[in-house]
């Protein structure tokens, strides 16, 4: 087979592919994938008081889910996380869609300004945002009370961040306030991608205004809203910063704002008298990993498969 040999000779090993790919893959593997795997592995271990590591199987998970000392905190944090997510979905998406729809009205003057301004909070650090709102909502300063007074609603005012019943909702709304610019932009981009022809065809069919939006445009941007939802879901497990900045590691009052992120931090590093426990920390991280996995899978198989993507 002379031909085959000729072909083999002219194909030197494609080193350039390796050179292009290797640095990224190495760093990614070493600093992201390996520690993630290591964290999953550690969830099956514990250590003696002398620090020696030993295999415990699923004992850590048993403790996390069933032992009252852990389970109470875990289920509380999980429920809070879920609530946090629901508030985002229920408030952030409708506001995002509304703002994007208004911005995408043809020839609306000043939309660059609106876009820029509404996106400002999303650029700032959660720490800054958290403190700013803490000050604004503080009864000592009284800014919120005054503002509510302007519209005759000052009787509603209370130390929202300090009360068990309202603290988590308040934090979730602060988070929505900060990040609503992102869904707004993504939906805005999706709306802009709908060709003008379609709106004009709808116009000729007598569909315009609100009907145009709800009957033609909204169905076309469902996939975008789906993506935003799954991004929000994943982002929830990163929501540590806001709560840590505003309420501290104990996620007060009385753990009413505790979510998995703060729970993980407290467990891993310890706080006050309790020592940090890397193995339980790893166990919590693994549980979060599984929850995300289930969520993403549910989305991919349940939602996205049924949703049609439109090519324009």
């Amino acid at each position: 087979m002379q031909h085959a040999r000729a072909a083999a000779r002219r194909k030197p090993f494609p080193w350039h592919v390796v050179v292009f790919l290797a640095p990224a893959v190495l760093i990614y593997t070493a600093v992201m994938i390996y520690p993630l795997a290591e964290t999953l592995r550690l969830s099956f271990f514990d250590r003696t008081d002398e620090g020696a590591r030993f295999w415990v199987g699923l004992v850590n998970f048993e403790r996390l889910f069933l032992d009252p000392h852990w389970a109470d905190q875990f289920w509380n944090a999980l429920a809070n996380n879920f609530y946090f997510f629901v508030v985002h979905m229920a408030v952030q998406n409708p506001i995002g869609v509304l703002l994007a729809a208004l911005l995408s009205m043809t020839h609306l003057p000043g939309r660059t300004f609106y876009r820029t301004a509404i996106f400002v909070p999303a650029m700032l650090s959660v720490v800054i945002i958290g403190f700013a709102w803490k000050l604004i909502l503080s009864p000592i300063w009284g800014v919120s009370e005054t503002l509510l007074g302007l519209v005759g609603l000052d009787f509603l005012f209370g130390p929202w961040l300090g009360k068990e019943g309202s603290a988590l909702t308040t934090l979730a709304l602060i988070s929505v306030w900060q990040y609503v610019g992102i869904p707004m932009m993504l939906i805005y981009a999706a709306l802009l991608a709908i060709p003008e022809d379609i709106s004009e065809a709808a116009d000729l069919d007598g569909v315009r205004g609100m009907a145009l939006f709800f009957k033609v445009k909204l169905p076309l941007i469902w996939p975008t809203i789906g993506i935003i939802s799954i991004l929000t879901f994943i982002g929830n497990f990163n929501a540590f910063d806001l709560i840590y900045a505003v309420q501290g590691a104990l996620a007060g009052p009385n753990f009413s704002t505790d979510i998995l992120g703060t729970f993980l931090y407290r467990t891993f590093f310890g706080h006050q008298l309790e020592l940090g426990d890397p193995h339980m920390g790893a166990t919590i991280a693994t549980a979060m990993f599984l929850i995300i996995l289930v969520g993403v899978m549910a989305y991919l198989w349940g939602v996205q498969r049924r949703m049609r993507r439109y090519q324009f």
């Binding site: 031909h3 085959a4 000729a6 072909a7």
Partner: peptide, 18 residues
Amino acid sequence: EDQTSGTISIGGTTVDHL
């Protein structure tokens, strides 16, 4: 593109390896 088998020659020279 590389052929799976066979030979190309240009001006009497085999160019498969070029």
